[in-house]
Amino acid sequence: MMAEVKGAGSVSAPTSGRFAAFSFVDRITAIEGVQQAKGVYTIPHDVTYFPVSLVAEALGQLAAWVAMSTCDFLRRPVAALAGDTRIHSYPKAGDTLELHVDIDSCDRDSIAYRGRATIGGKLVLELLDTLGSNLDTEIFDSPEALATDFSTLIGAGRQPGCFAGVPLPAVTVSSHDAGRRIDAMLDIPQDAAYFLDHFPRRPVFPATLLLDAQLQLARKIIADMTGYQTPLQVTRITNVKVRAFTSPGATLGIFAEASSPSEADPEPILIKVGALAGTRTIAAAKIFFAPESRE
């Protein structure tokens, strides 16, 4: 049984920089060894743009806190593989995400976990088959500072509202074969608040923001498609893999291409997306779309 973590009165946190600009757990409410954890995160009321990929980020961060706490914060999950992400609904500003992760394994080198996020008990997003590489924390952040942050999270919690939003991805379309394929350049900002938090010692463009940029490209292909009575929405993202770190100021080539789902896939539309640094593929995913449910 999970131990409930009780705290009274949240702790004020800085509104920018580390433990603020790209941190999506306000409080860890229950934790059971290295097996399970629960937490909460409230999307600030004034945030106008909260990509659904940040819900997956929140679950990944909760799992990361658990993983780090088992090794004195000397190792931390960084790169990730998300085998199967299911999107059930979209959160909005002011919503409080209830986060739950089940950790299947965690050792020095890697973590395997599943997670789900709900709002008022209603399922928003599920993460299945997620893997992360555990790397030396010292490269990215201060283990001591992370230990302090963790104490805050399992205690009174962090003051909600620290997230000031992320800019829309700077995507420049270079070619567009309507309904089939789009190629574009994605300019990573040189300066963005999230780099102060992700990560303080080595800024890395968050994989979940890269996925959001790719998702926007996929939606452009969907916008070309006609013949559906109801709007198409993302239901599932599979085979997400990020193979390299992207630094501030970099430019990536990104693409989205319509493909054929396999017979086992329930959705009618599959868009494959990828990212390249030069000619090297550094990220890929499959995004499935289906007509919006009218339930």
């Binding site: 593989l81 050792d107 080198d109 890697s110 893999k241 990020v242 193979r243």
Partner: peptide, 25 residues
């Protein structure tokens, strides 16, 4: 051009394909 993350992915996929358990490392 495999990266270290690809080995993690590969072992996970092999575990599924062959119904085996391979501890990391």
């Amino acid at each position: 051009d495999a990266e270290s993350i690809d080995f993690l992915d590969l072992i996970f996929r092999l575990e599924r394909a062959f119904k085996i358990k391979v501890p990391r490392g």
